[in-house]
Simulated scan of single mutants.
Amino acid sequence: MAEATPLLTVEHLKVSYPIRSSILLRKIGEKLAVSDVNFEIRPGETVGLVGESGSGKSTIARTVIGLVPSAGGVIRFEGRDITKLTPRELKEVRRDMQMVFQDPYASLNPRLTVRDLIAEAWRVHTGIVPRDRWTAEAKDLMERVGLNPDYSDRYPHQFSGGQRQRIGIARALALRPKLIICDEAVSALDVSVQAQVLNLLEDLQADLGLSYLFISHDLSVIEHICDRVLVLDRGVVVEEGTARELFENPQDPYTRALLAAVPVVRPWLEQTP
């Protein structure tokens, strides 16, 4: 995997947000949210972004997928600079990049059934699945993510939080992507449900060869699922390495502070004699 050509390459990424006055919302400046971020994701690899709230994790994710414009730098997907694409060209690239959002309920249209939520991707991106196969394919995806396909006519409010997140994963899989961005995808779930969803993501990666950009503030989740990790502090990468290197021998004071803030179930076992 280390010698594979990168699927995604981010070079010197900068993202800023406008500062507007309270009078007529006139722009009076800019706030730099992400500064000079560089990383790669290779096929079949999971790269984690970790940091406290406001560190720029979700901003990077939304910029990579094209929901937020960049203020500088280059984002290459399979060698193609996607920051310079037209809306039509970007739509084509989005077939290969999908996103699973933090809140599984807010990200699903409550007026659509599960079958229609999944098939919506095929309505926008035509030619992937024939229309007469939509119902069958939607049920197959539901079964793949651990949902009862007989519930394809139910609505999001009829499912639990963990089941709704599985619907979100099924919807992301509908376009057969190569990269899935998981933006705090398990943070709203109970611990036991988190483990089930993480195991599902790992199984899907093994079966389909998926790559993940995995964002979380939960260091135990990052340690479990990620191959490499980037630590963000106020929009800047302060440390990068494999998950083992980062957790066993953190170098940056900010990384050490994050690890020190993790609650310990049995603190007396952590004490050295």
Rank of each mutant, 00 (worst) to 15 (best):
E3Y: 06
L7D: 01
V10S: 03
L24I: 13
I28H: 12
I28A: 06
N38S: 15
E40C: 09
E40G: 07
P43M: 08
T46P: 03
S55G: 10
K57P: 02
G73R: 03
I75S: 06
T86W: 09
R88G: 15
K91M: 13
M97A: 07
V100K: 05
V100R: 05
V100T: 04
F101K: 01
F101E: 03
P104G: 10
Y105R: 14
Y105Q: 14
L112I: 00
L117Y: 02
W122M: 13
W122I: 09
H125M: 05
P130Y: 00
P130R: 03
D132W: 12
R133L: 10
L141G: 03
M142L: 15
P149V: 09
P156N: 07
Q163R: 09
R164W: 05
Q165K: 07
I169A: 05
I169M: 08
R171W: 04
L175V: 15
I180G: 01
A185N: 08
V193W: 05
Q194E: 11
A195S: 12
V197W: 02
L204M: 13
L208Y: 12
I215W: 01
D218S: 11
V221S: 04
E223I: 04
V238F: 09
E239V: 03
L246R: 00
D252P: 02
P253F: 13
Y254H: 07
R256F: 11
T272S: 12
T272Y: 10
P273V: 12
